[in-house]
């Protein structure tokens, strides 16, 4: 399973549990706001060699139907995938708000 973004719940001090409180991989805040550039995959050029999947420090790349797919909630836009990609299938584009 790939951990996913959940809704952040507010709770009062009395409700704070005394021991481990949430299930493992409980994520409530995204990292997408860190990006100034985003990787974009050209699925026509992607050969599914999985080098980007292996080298992504955040593990946001997965392979679906033989092509790389990015989880933009947690991609920080470091650009390692674009550099590692031999066929040149990943380009970095400026983030626009």
């Amino acid at each position: 399973m790939r951990p996913y973004l959940r809704e952040k719940k507010d709770f009062s001090f009395a409700e704070v549990p005394e021991n481990t409180s949430f299930e493992a991989g409980y994520l409530v805040s995204a990292n997408s706001g860190w990006r100034s550039v985003r990787p974009v995959i050209d699925s026509g050029k992607c050969v599914g060699c999985e080098q980007c999947y292996l080298y992504c420090p955040d593990g946001v790349i997965s392979i679906k139907d033989g092509k790389a797919v990015i989880d933009y909630d947690f991609c920080k836009g470091c650009g390692i995938c674009a550099k590692i990609c031999k066929p040149g299938a990943i380009g970095m584009e400026a983030e626009r708000k």
């Binding site: 399973m1 790939r2 951990p3 973004l5 991989g25 994520l27 805040s29 995204a30 990292n31 860190w34 990006r35 080298y55 992504c56 420090p57 955040d58 593990g59 947690f74 920080k76 836009g77 470091c78 650009g79 390692i80």
Partner: peptide
Amino acid sequence: EEFFYGHKACAGCGGSL
């Protein structure tokens, strides 16, 4: 599966890789 996901390491962190 991913066992270290959504962490707050700097972009491009070698340790998290």
